[in-house]
Structures are given as structure tokens and as C-alpha cells.
Design a protein around this nucleic acid. Structure first.
Length: 285
DNA sequence: AGATCGCCCTGCTTGC
DNA sequence: TGCAAGCAGGGCGATC
């Protein structure tokens, strides 16, 4: 459930607490956490040892730590329940601690990857000339990226034969949007989640993009969305945006615009929340 | 070839 | 009380 704002909060924490430190030793406690590192856990820890960490970057829900002088990066995806925590050495191991990284300096902290559901993981990859790990070259720029091309996004939408929420969650079209921020942006834009992408005019696409950015920036400003202790920053602190959600998780509660009860509909083995009055299904053409 | 579906995984909640 | 089903759901490989 960490989406762009939550991952960016984590990235900022890593920039502050982990950048420019040198790895003394990495330890993999659960092999599944490094399954995307095809050469295996031993290779992963061997390659990290002695490397100095550069400034962390992010694209969509992926973040990575460049290893200086190697042309490689440690790629991280939090999946559903992943956390990157900066903890004192003396802190008791978390129940779902998967990877630990210790550093050579005298600071009292280590980096820990903790993940209950193990959908997330860490892996090491070559960087492309643009400086991003090669395995995420297919991930589109995210809406907070200054180089995101609004017009190209609109044209890509029009090329697709699908519905708008599927498109928003398609990380090769626009990255960083998950179920929560898709529902929130659609509510703000008064667009039904099943509106066909071929009905999108340029102004409608722009309106939606503007709302995606607004809701993500608003969430970022308060540390992201946390429903429970699973979604936290590197210091284990929760964000506050759950209080500001207008659609997601608000089944039967009144729409904050018109008072109509928010509805939840099963959708792609998950849920879509929407206001049946503000967000009308377009008439079939 | 593009769109869709099923699976991975654990813990909390719900219902019988 | 106990157990099973339901739910949370991003990404990827298989399939249509």
C-alpha cells in the first residue's frame, strides 16, 4: 500500500540518515526478500560490503540507493507491507526483519528492511545511462517528476482500450499511483473509475492529472497515509493523510461534497470507493 | 500484441 | 471458542 507519497517520505529519510555511509556488512534473514536478486543472497551481501551509498532516488513506488563507483544500485520496492527503518543497533529485531545493513561509521544506527507480507524486496542492478536500475526502465515517470509529459500521457490514454482506473494503475503509463490515490484523484476530479479512456478529452486528462498531483502533494506534506503501524517512515512514524481521505475506506460515510453515501465496489480482486452522485458512470456509447 | 487473470504472502477481521 | 473464509493488493508471468 505504500504509494508514491509514502515511498518519497521513506526516500527523504534515507537521504538524511543513510546517504554517504559505507556498508560494513549486509545480512539477509529471509531469502524471499532478495528474490529479485537472481544471483542470490550471498552475492547480494558480498556486493554491498565496503560500498559507499550515494543519494537515494525514486521513480513511482521504486526507490534505489546508488553504490558509488560501481554503476550499480540497490533497488527497493516496499510491496504491500515493506518498511525501511533506521534503527539503533540495540533495538530488538522486528518480527519480520528480512535484511539488515550495518555501516562502518561510529553512528549508532543500522538500516533494516522489515516486511510482513514479503511482497517487497531488495536487489542489486546495473544502472542505465540515465542512472536508474535497468530492471525498472519500463516504469513510466511519475506525476511529480518534472520531466513527466502531460501531453504524452493524454495521448497514451487515448491509445489504450481500457478504463481509467486500470490506466492509472498501469505503471508503464504513469507510475506511483496505487488504489488509494487513484480513488482519491478520481473523486476529486468527479470521474467514475470505469470511464473508458477513449472518452478522455485533453482538458479531462489534464484535470485528472492535476488532481493526482494535488492529492499526492497534500499527502506528502503530512507524511503520507498510514492506516496502521505497517506504513511508516524510516523512524517508524506514521503519516496523517488517512484523516484527509475523501473516498478510500469511506464506505457508507457521506460524501464530503454532496452527502451521498460513498460506495464500495469489488474491482479487480480489490475495492473501488466512489460517490455514486458526483462520479456518474458515463452512458454506454 | 495488448488486455486480463491468477498467484504470491501474512495477519487481522468477520461470520458461522 | 474455533476454525475458515474474506480482505488488504503491487507486480509479474501466463493466458486469451
Amino acid at each position: 500500500m505504500p504509494e508514491l507519497p509514502e515511498v518519497e517520505v521513506v526516500r527523504r529519510g534515507l537521504e538524511r540518515w543513510v546517504a554517504h555511509r559505507t556498508v560494513a556488512e549486509a545480512e539477509v534473514l529471509h531469502p524471499r526478500a532478495v528474490r529479485r536478486h537472481v544471483a542470490g543472497a550471498e552475492d547480494f551481501t558480498h556486493r554491498l560490503k565496503g560500498r559507499r551509498v550515494g543519494v537515494p532516488s525514486r521513480r513511482g513506488k521504486y526507490l534505489w540507493l546508488p553504490l558509488e563507483g560501481t554503476g550499480q544500485s540497490v533497488l527497493a520496492h516496499l510491496g504491500m507491507s515493506g518498511q525501511l527503518l533506521v534503527q539503533p543497533h540495540t533495538a530488538v529485531d522486528e518480527k519480520h526483519l528480512r535484511v539488515r545493513v550495518r555501516f562502518t561509521d561510529a553512528l549508532d544506527t543500522e538500516l533494516r528492511f522489515v516486511d510482513q507480507r514479503t511482497f517487497g524486496g531488495l536487489s542489486l542492478h546495473e544502472n542505465t545511462p540515465e542512472g536508474l536500475p535497468d530492471v525498472i526502465a519500463h516504469i513510466a515517470r511519475d506525476p511529480l517528476d518534472p520531466l513527466f509529459d502531460d501531453d504524452a500521457f493524454h495521448r497514451a490514454l487515448r491509445r489504450k482500450r481500457t478504463t481509467i482506473k486500470r490506466a492509472l494503475l498501469d505503471q508503464s503509463l504513469i507510475s506511483g499511483v496505487g488504489n488509494i490515490y487513484a480513488d482519491e484523484a478520481l473523486w476529486r476530479a468527479r470521474i467514475h473509475y470505469e470511464r473508458p479512456t477513449e472518452t478522455f478529452t485533453r482538458p479531462r486528462s489534464q484535470l485528472l492529472l492535476d488532481h493526482v498531483r494535488d492529492v499526492m502533494n497534500a499527502a506528502l506534506a503530512v507524511g503520507g497515509t498510514s492506516f496502521d503501524s505497517l506504513y511508516v517512515d524510516v523512524n517508524g512514524e506514521s503519516g496523517y493523510f488517512d484523516r484527509s481521505l475523501d473516498a478510500y475506506g469511506r464506505e457508507d460515510l457521506p460524501c464530503r461534497r454532496c452527502g451521498t453515501p460513498i460506495r464500495r465496489r469489488p474491482w479487480m480482486n480489490r475495492s473501488s470507493y466512489f460517490c455514486p452522485r458526483c462520479q456518474r458512470v458515463p452512458r454506454a456509447s
